[in-house]
Structure formats: structure tokens, C-alpha cells
Amino acid sequence: MQRPRTLEQALEVLARATSSARLLAGGTDLMVEFETGRTHPDVVFDLWGVKELRYVRAENGGLRLGSLSTCRDLLDSALAREGADLLVLAADEVGAEQIKNRATLGGNLGTASPASDLGPVLSVLRARVRLVSLRGEREVSVDDFWTGYRATQRANDELIESVFIPTCPRDERRGFRKVGTRRAQSISKVVVAMALRVDGGVLQGVRSAAGSVAERIVRLSTLERALDGQRPSRALVSDATRDSARVDARPIDDVRSTARYRRATLQRVAEGLILDLAGIEGAH
């Protein structure tokens, strides 16, 4: 058990970390794992005290969010509401107020849950993750950061220092939708984020990602390819979302939902979001 207070201390203790070490931030995931006996860690690094990682600040060309920023911090930040609107929307739906006060951005990234509510939004917002260690620092896109089911490319000695969100194009339209059935405190069954521009009647820069439909957060690249540069029509959007739900999603049946429901809902929700953002009437 180590409880560093500064980034420097954190990097020093992490330098000796092995793969069995667990990094504790706000505890909303890890404490459940401990309690249910799924994890019996020997080595835990409690990062909660590294207050310098709790910030939201403007940076050249975008916004930098410290990894220990909580969902509540994001909601309370005028900068975040302005520069990462979709992320704030998603942060508001992560859980109850009690959870939002502890759940952190870095914890969310590091846990790499396929059901992460923040995940699809970070992907659509082109977020980049800054990893630091005594060896140096590097920045990777979130799409590359997640490598599989609850897996990331963070090395044992690295710390998720922050996330950079580049400034969104001025005319970009964005949407987010979480489907959890229960309206609060739910783990998502399907979560979708979408961004696009409409330029002279043509769709540009379509970006979309979804959670809870595969072993990790996935980009809906089939949909993006099908729509980019096209004039939107109901038929086109229907076809694109259908293809995407068939190709990009790899959902499973589990205790919360069915693969069929996840796939169908991904298609229906994505279709509605696109029609809505593109200004086309009524999804169904």
C-alpha cells in the first residue's frame, strides 16, 4: 500500500510496480472488486491524494483534464461544459451524485470497461491520453489506448496523467445517448456518442462510437465511412446504421441484456441521433 501525495512520488512508486499492482483512484470500481472478492491485491497504490492531477485547464488547441478529475469536477467546470460538452453530458449519467463525487476520468479510462459511459464520448471527441513515467511521457489516442476487454496499453510504471480534448470544429453537431433501462444508477446496455458536420447539405467529419456492444468501446467506422461526404437521407442513414450494427458491434447476452437487443438498439439509437443531428425528421 502506497499513498503518494505528488505526481513525482507517484511516478517513483510506480517505477517499482509489477502487473499485479492495482491503482486506486476514487474507489467506485475497485472497492466493489475488493468487497466481492474478485480481487485480492497485494499491492495497491492509492492515487487519490495526488491533488495536482485534479484540474481542468485550457491548453493550446483544446482542453486538458487531469486524470483525477471527478465527474462532479467536470460538471462544475465552465471550461469543460464549454469545451467538452458531450463529456459533461456523459459524466452526468455515470451514476448517482455520490458516485459522481468519486468516479474519476483516469479511473474510468484505466478500468477500460466496455460499458464505460465516458468511453464513446472520449472517442468521438478525439481525446488523447497522456501517460507519464520516470522514463518519460507519451500521448496516445483513446482508441489506441484501449486494447481489449478491460485492457489498455498503459505500462506498469505509467500513470494516466491527463486527457487532452482538442477544440471541436465550430460547426460540429454532437449527440450522446445512454440506454440503461433504469433512469439512474444503471450500467449501460448501449451507449452511443455521435459527432458530425453538415456542410452544404453534405455530411462531413462523421465520428461515432459505442459502448456495451463489444468487448471494448468501439468506433462505428462502417457508419462513418458510409456517411462521410454523403447527402443524408433516411434510407442512407438506415442502411449505414444497419450495416454498422451488424459489422462494428460484437454484443453478447449477459445478465443485463441480450445481444439482439444491444445490436438492434445500437442501430435504432444511432439512426435517431444522426437524423436528429442532420436535421432530418423523425427516426421511425
Binding site: G27, T28, D46
Partner: peptide, 19 residues
């Protein structure tokens, strides 16, 4: 199990006491 930590509501079942 909600309690206030520095005035903020948290679930005390998820807060390790060291924090």
C-alpha cells in the same frame, strides 16, 4: 451508507478509510 466527506456526499462502502 451515504455520509458527507468534506461536505460532499459519498457512499461510505466505496471509500477506503485511508482516503
Amino acid at each position: 451508507c451515504t455520509v458527507l466527506v468534506n461536505g460532499e456526499p459519498v457512499n461510505s462502502c466505496l471509500v477506503p478509510v485511508c482516503q
